[in-house]
Design a protein around this nucleic acid. Structure first.
Ligand SMILES: [Zn+2]
Ligand SMILES: [Zn+2]
Ligand SMILES: [Zn+2]
Ligand SMILES: [Zn+2]
Lengths: 127, 127
DNA sequence: TACATAGTGTTATATTATAACAATTTAAAT
DNA sequence: ATTTAAATTGTTATAATATAACACTATGTA
């Protein structure tokens, strides 16, 4: 188990409370009152939190979301659905999907244990 | 069929010749001798080329690659493998993968016709 | 022609992310 | 307990990625 440092905990708590993915400078703005003043302090905490699987980066949005899948602690095998209207992001936790992807073989017979999948569409509310 | 504008053609030709994904400012540097001087000119052409499916953005790398899959002309359903050492990127064109993903239903029974999948690992040469 | 749509050129600026260096804290190892 | 290594922090500066706003030009179509 991993105990978070002060900055890591502050930033994780903020992201974890947020109903939507947060961008790095929005995080910075929000934690300035807690003494975190510089972008680098935010990015360092983000890097570590991603590395240990507590948060994930939504690559197409340059934004960060808390892991919604308790089993994902170090995993780099992630899947999300993203609403193109309201930008709601949901982490997909599907055993059959992850099984399919980790077993997928490319033309050369190569398998991949790390992947990131982003689905785009409209969420329930926006349809 | 779509006929590319001057800037779009210049930038597409450059990306299409490149053996690896190109970043926007590397593109800019390379096309300055052809009269394209400003980032915005590059980004506008990139946006259009992505929109019509001639190129794809590798989101985790902020880089652009020509479509290696002649059937992808407007599609937003893309999959790539990325070598974590040499950064070689290959577009995956697998009927079974695309079928699996377009038919995938999330917890709410929702399907997605748009997705982007990036696999990470080591290419043949780097293993 | 007249009109709409797409593309261009340009300057300025916003957003996202890292380099480099010094100091401090934490956790382990002797 | 002391030494050592690893991780974290604080700070300033800067690099890399991307868009806003405005004026103008080309292209296709009615
Ligand atoms: Zn997760
Ligand atoms: Zn929505
Ligand atoms: Zn393609
Ligand atoms: Zn490689």
């Amino acid at each position: 188990m991993h105990t978070l440092s002060k900055n890591q905990q502050i930033i994780f708590d903020l992201i974890d409370k947020s109903p939507e993915p947060m961008k790095a400078y929005a995080i910075l703005f929000n934690v300035q009152k807690k003494g975190i003043k510089a972008p680098l302090q935010v990015y360092r905490a983000l890097d570590k939190l991603v590395e240990i699987g507590k948060i994930h980066k939504i690559e197409s949005r340059n934004a960060f979301i808390a892991c919604q899948n308790s089993s994902c602690q170090v995993s780099k095998a992630t899947a999300f659905s993203i609403c193109e209207i309201c930008e709601k992001v949901t982490e997909i936790s599907s055993a059959s999907l992850s099984k399919y992807l980790t077993n997928f073989k490319d033309k050369d017979g190569m398998k991949y244990s790390k992947y990131n999948l982003e689905f785009f569409g409209l969420c329930k509310k926006c349809r």
